[in-house]
Design a protein around this nucleic acid. Sequence first.
DNA 1: GGCACCATACCGACCGGTTGGTATGGAAGT
DNA 2: ACTTCCATACCAACCGGTCGGTATGGTGCC
Lengths: 205, 205
Amino acid sequence: MNDSPADSRTRLLDAALKVIRTRGYSATRIDDICAEAALSKGSFFHHFASKEALAVEAARHWSAVTDAFFAAAPYHQSADPLERVLGYIDFRRSILSGLVPEFTCLVGTMVQETYDSSPAIRDACEASISGHAATVARDIELARAKYAPNAPWTAESLALHTQAVLQGAFILAKARGNARVAEESVDHLKRYVELLFHPTNPKEH
Amino acid sequence: MNDSPADSRTRLLDAALKVIRTRGYSATRIDDICAEAALSKGSFFHHFASKEALAVEAARHWSAVTDAFFAAAPYHQSADPLERVLGYIDFRRSILSGLVPEFTCLVGTMVQETYDSSPAIRDACEASISGHAATVARDIELARAKYAPNAPWTAESLALHTQAVLQGAFILAKARGNARVAEESVDHLKRYVELLFHPTNPKEH
DNA sequence: GGCACCATACCGACCGGTTGGTATGGAAGT
DNA sequence: ACTTCCATACCAACCGGTCGGTATGGTGCC
């Protein structure tokens, strides 16, 4: 566990995120990851027992990286929970720029390919998605208690719905080759949340 | 192009749909498809020039199969376009039963794996998704003209949003191992559409 | 300091099963 | 005879994983 400028294990994990996000899990070769990390196969198998074990660790690494990323995002500063929820959605929308593999989700991609073949990877992906949804659900629950205590939906299900919209938006972006469609879908999501919390304030509707 | 009880080419395409939906594109082996279709590799390469060519044809076949499936669905019988739109969503929700590979989307799965490596497959998947969205958009546009002519969103973007929700719901279902989450997300989608068209009818909100 | 010993980290050649694709030939219809 | 359709046999490249070996550095003993 030496930690030089960039730990070899971390370099391999970062390389895995990048390569898997662009090519998908099955199509990425261990050699591709090694090349991206500028390390050898010997090093790879020193740190990971198998390709599958790497995938599980990559999902965990993804969670750690994204948790830190969202924890540092500005929307947490709002005092009002609903503003934080809407701020989260705005933030998600704002990062839909740049190249497709840079804003899409590792675990959403991986679970599509592995849900039937690798329970270990599937569970790691599920934990990543649900973990992130749970952090969103906390603010949603606060907003719900404050503004819509009798709402017929749960904070958890709305949080998962936000993730579904995002995951689906990524698919559309990949199919279209750009993020415009994804942005529009997130716009619909934001309008939905606004309507849920301000049903009597139609704006234009 | 003979069409016996079950055309070999069609059998291969149907087999491809099934196998790719469960294992993903990269992980499915041509031999798996042949085995599923009870045909040989010789037959496969008689009908398809390559694995990539099969994928393109599979996407088109998927479009044809799903087009027929949705065209025959009962929701088209409503005279009111908004009822047809809501009926479409109800119908999409109702088919979220059975095993995961039986209700998920072939092209949504494939495009995640191929958007960067195969423009031909990506384009075929894009055409399939957009084509289906366009049929949904027709009823949405009619409903919009009738009930919400000044709405600040386009029928096309709302139709694409429905597809995003569904695609994302499939990912969550794969991660969870069952369709419950997907149903809940489609419930949110339906509530959104109802709110868009009946903003002054709060029910409970 | 110098030495023996050992653990971690890493390299890259190599192995063997897998896999996309090819070659060839045969059966059946026309 | 010619085409269509499909099966068997086969090939060469690929790829996950193995293995022998090297480099580095820490620890304890003298």
